[in-house]
Each structure stands twice: as C-alpha cells, then as structure tokens.
C-alpha cells in the first residue's frame, strides 16, 4: 500500500463509520508497521485529534442537577435559569465573601451504593449462569444502552462482580465495577477511563473512593490503549466520606 493511500484512509477515520467495511484497515495497519514516516504522521495526527477532543469537552460546569422533569413539564417556567440570575448573583457574592473554598470544590466522593442505580438487575448466580466473559460483554452492552461506550478489562473475574454503575469524575460519567474479595468486607473497585475524555497523564494523585485507603494500579482495558482501568483494593469504608486511593 502507498503512503498516500494509507494516509487518505486514516484521514477518513473509517473506525467511525459504524457498520463500515473494515477490510482496508488491516492493510493500513500492516503499512504503518513497515513505514516509520507514516507511523510518526499517524501518532502526531492522533495526538492532535485527542487534543481537539479534550478542548471541545472543556466547557463550564452545568449549574443545575437532576431536575424532576415530570413535575417541571407541567409548569410554565421555561427560561427559569434567566429569572434566577439576579438571585444567583446575590448568593454568589455572599459565597465569595464568606466562603472562597466553594470555588475549589473537592472531587466528589464515589458513593458505591448510589452508583449501582443504573443497572439494578443482577446476574443469576447459578451453575448454568453466564460465564465471566459473557458477563463482561453484557456489562459493556448495558453501558452502551445508556450511551456510555467502554471496554472492560478481560483480566478480571466477572463471576465475582457485586454490582456496577456510573460515577461522576471530572464531569464525566465513568463506568464503575465492584467485585467481592476473598474475605469479609474486602472489595475491589474498578473505574474504566476513556483516554479521549481524560488526560491520563494529569490524573490527580489521589481519587476519592468508597474503600479504605490503599494503593491503586493501572490496567490497560483494551489493545488500542484507549480505555484504562484504575483498580483499587480495600475494605469497605464505613466512616465519613473522603477516603482516597493513591495511584
């Protein structure tokens, strides 16, 4: 394959075609392995694309949380946020004067029990139940069903899965899995991060977790390196929120 052809196909981003014809991609992969120029060009282009995606996602934080839309649909106020602006400004000034810490919000602790809201139905725990691998695929399908694309690491034992759900980290919905450990309250918590949404090189040194403080490890969740799993083991935290895991 010629360099020009390979670069043209890569520029087309065929992986974003959905149900596209993937035959050409194998040839492009082979070409990249043999051609250092194209390999360098491709890496640079990917980095620029990732940078653009990160910039595009860098927007101010939303100022309202889950509304009761069933109730709100019967009310007349459509542009409610504009009417709240004067009151909001007064509150903001008061907060600015008395509590500058408000604008340095700590990361939200990950509440394991609340995180399970999204996937309530559990897996059948019978001998004839799904295999660990089929559970992993089923979990990926469930996340996809609510619009969260992810790849879960296959190095984990999904037969030990306690529950799964979403947690909020740096403004993004992050898939979370919690596995039972070998003894008592010992748990393993896994967060799967998408490198297109997170700058993995600048993750904070510690992330709040529902477990007692312990060391965490990083695990590649897929071959492309796009998804990375943060794995932390520990006892279930029973005290006040705020325990952190160091990576």
């Amino acid at each position: 394959m010629q360099c020009e052809t390979a670069r043209f196909i890569l520029e087309l981003d065929l992986t974003r075609m959905g149900e596209a014809d993937w035959r050409d991609l194998d040839a492009v992969e082979a070409h990249l392995q043999d051609c250092p120029d194209c390999q360098g060009w491709h890496l640079q282009r990917q980095a620029a694309e990732n940078r653009m995606a990160q910039l595009m996602q860098n927007v101010p934080a939303i100022r309202f949380k889950h509304q009761n839309f069933q109730r709100d649909s019967h009310t007349e106020g459509r542009n409610w946020s504009r009417r709240l602006i004067p009151y909001g400004l007064v509150v903001a000034v008061i907060l600015l004067i008395f509590s500058p810490m408000v604008f340095r919000q700590p990361a939200k602790p990950l509440d394991i029990e609340l995180a399970a809201w999204i996937m309530r139905e559990g897996f059948e725990s019978s001998v004839d139940g799904p295999t660990a691998d089929s559970r992993r695929l089923e979990l990926e399908r469930r996340f996809a069903r609510i619009g969260v694309t992810t790849r879960l690491p296959d190095a984990l034992d999904y037969s030990q899965l306690l529950f799964s759900g979403l947690v909020e980290l740096q403004g993004h919905a992050v898939p979370q899995l919690v596995f039972s450990g070998s003894t008592g309250d010992w748990l393993t918590q896994v967060l799967v991060l998408d490198s297109r949404k997170f700058d993995l090189s600048s993750l904070p040194e510690s992330i709040p977790t529902g477990l007692t403080s312990s060391e965490g490890t990083l695990l590649n969740a897929d071959e492309s390196g796009r998804f990375v799993a943060l794995v932390v083991d520990g006892f279930r935290r029973k005290g006040p929120a705020g325990a952190k895991a160091a990576w």
Binding site: V59, P60, I62, F64, K65, Q67, R82, I85, G147
Partner: peptide
Amino acid sequence: KAHQQSLFRYAFRLTGQTADAEDLVQ
C-alpha cells in the same frame, strides 16, 4: 442523570453561552 452533562457540553458548544445552554438542556 445519564445524559445531562454531555447534552450540556453539546448545547454550550452550539450556543456559546452557559445560560442559553442550560435552557436548551432543560
């Protein structure tokens, strides 16, 4: 719960204004 953040980001990039984006999501 699942989509308001991503919808807000989309709305903000379309409108360029936080208040407009919040109204749009609402």
